[in-house]
Amino acid sequence: MSSAPQRHRTAFAISALAAGTALAGLAGVATSPVAPPSAQMTIAGQADLAYVVYAPERRHPVEATAAREGAIVDWLSQRLNRPLSVPSLREYGYALPGGRRLPGAAGPAAQFMYEDGAGARLALYVSPASQRETAIHVLREGDRRTFSWANDHMGCALSGRMAEGQLRKIAVDVCSEPGGHPEPWR
Score class of each variant (00 low, 15 high):
2 S>E: 12
8 H>F: 12
8 H>S: 10
11 A>N: 05
11 A>M: 06
12 F>H: 08
14 I>T: 13
15 S>G: 13
16 A>V: 14
21 T>W: 12
21 T>Q: 07
21 T>H: 09
22 A>Y: 04
29 V>Q: 01
40 Q>Y: 00
42 T>S: 15
47 A>I: 07
48 D>L: 12
48 D>Q: 13
48 D>I: 02
49 L>M: 14
49 L>I: 04
50 A>M: 11
55 A>E: 08
57 E>D: 12
58 R>W: 10
58 R>F: 10
59 R>C: 03
60 H>L: 11
60 H>E: 12
61 P>V: 10
66 A>C: 05
68 R>E: 15
68 R>P: 00
69 E>K: 13
70 G>L: 08
73 V>I: 15
73 V>A: 14
74 D>I: 02
77 S>R: 06
79 R>V: 04
81 N>K: 14
83 P>F: 01
85 S>C: 01
89 L>C: 03
90 R>I: 09
90 R>K: 13
92 Y>L: 03
92 Y>W: 15
94 Y>E: 01
95 A>I: 05
99 G>C: 11
101 R>D: 07
103 P>R: 03
105 A>C: 05
105 A>R: 14
112 F>Y: 11
113 M>A: 04
116 D>V: 07
117 G>T: 12
118 A>N: 11
118 A>M: 08
119 G>Y: 09
123 A>Y: 01
123 A>V: 05
126 V>A: 11
129 A>R: 08
130 S>T: 03
132 R>C: 01
132 R>H: 13
132 R>A: 14
135 A>Q: 06
135 A>E: 06
135 A>I: 00
136 I>W: 09
136 I>K: 04
138 V>P: 07
144 R>E: 13
144 R>S: 12
145 R>Y: 14
146 T>Q: 03
147 F>I: 02
147 F>N: 00
149 W>K: 06
149 W>E: 10
150 A>S: 15
151 N>M: 14
154 M>Y: 08
159 S>N: 02
162 M>Y: 01
164 E>K: 03
164 E>Y: 00
169 K>C: 00
169 K>L: 08
169 K>G: 02
170 I>A: 06
172 V>F: 11
172 V>P: 02
174 V>M: 05
174 V>S: 04
178 P>R: 05
178 P>L: 08
182 P>T: 06
185 W>V: 13
186 R>I: 07
